[in-house]
Design a protein around this nucleic acid. Sequence first.
DNA 1: CTCTTCTCGGATATTCAATGTCCGAGTTAT
DNA 2: ATAACTCGGACATTGAATATCCGAGAAGAG
Lengths: 172, 172
Amino acid sequence: MRLSSGVEWGLHCCVTLSQSQHPVPASRLAELHGVPQPYLAKQLQALSRANLVASTQGQAGGYELTRPASQITALDVVVAIDGTEPAFRCTEIRQRGPLAADPERCLLPCAIARAMATAEQAWRSALAEITVADLAEQVDADSGGTALERLQRWFSATTPSPASPSGPRGSR
Amino acid sequence: MRLSSGVEWGLHCCVTLSQSQHPVPASRLAELHGVPQPYLAKQLQALSRANLVASTQGQAGGYELTRPASQITALDVVVAIDGTEPAFRCTEIRQRGPLAADPERCLLPCAIARAMATAEQAWRSALAEITVADLAEQVDADSGGTALERLQRWFSATTPSPASPSGPRGSR
DNA sequence: CTCTTCTCGGATATTCAATGTCCGAGTTAT
DNA sequence: ATAACTCGGACATTGAATATCCGAGAAGAG
């Protein structure tokens, strides 16, 4: 069983976006996280399709969260990127072979599929308990309370505020 | 996220083996479940490596459970086939990019990895609650109490008992 | 005791999905 | 009106899961 690496990037991006007041271009997010830009864009599109982030085009465009970070759960992000397909897919083995079960008795999923589904539900419930705001708070605590501040400082350095007085020219 | 189909086959095989008093060859298990023999063999080897089933070679050989079905959990089977690798693998994004975190502060996993690990632990715990004996019981109940009896009848038809009086010649 | 038959075990091709990449459509500020 | 910058979907490539084969070994029959 393997979870797409895009899930990790998507979660990091959501935490990052929760600290910005302005749209952030995909290229900046990729630079910040040290991941290939084109592939990250693919994941951001998935987040956009799920209405977790909104995209703004044009010169000062980019991505921003559509809701407060406290109302976006880790499950939302995982489902948006990884899809809603269950990890375990029953192929109805009980209806195959010489001892095939009567299809009439197969109205509900087989016992094995039920057990796997129950476990998967426990996984989803745990993810639904965590919000992006929770994650941001913990990330900040892990860094000793400096991460979010540094993040916001980096934003104001890259996306020059519209009313920036003598805004610093980009280093490059 | 996707779980190998071998997990489904492995669980079905364990339930099946729990109803046999004698070793069952891989070819019979494949025929019974309607799955390709060579690939099923691969999964059975994984179960054997994990010491969930024991293999006997030779003419009356095959696979059998090494423990009572009530002492084998669904988690045991999943881990044996799918491996112990976590579904979410943290690539330490926090240590990359222009705002890389101080490695000194990265002694414990990042907040995102912790959240995903917690959810995965909930999944594992749910699987550990279910035993192969539970599954066999539920399968039997779903079929109206006929599945296990039919299974045992099929065993005695295919694996002629050593003391079988005038054992029925194979139909072919 | 020898031989035959049946079994498992690991090494080997093939298919499919996830990964990584590119170029065109659209929008905003100049 | 122009031009620059943005996102969005369509296109190769890599890797793992899938499917398969043949050889080693053991048990039983003769």
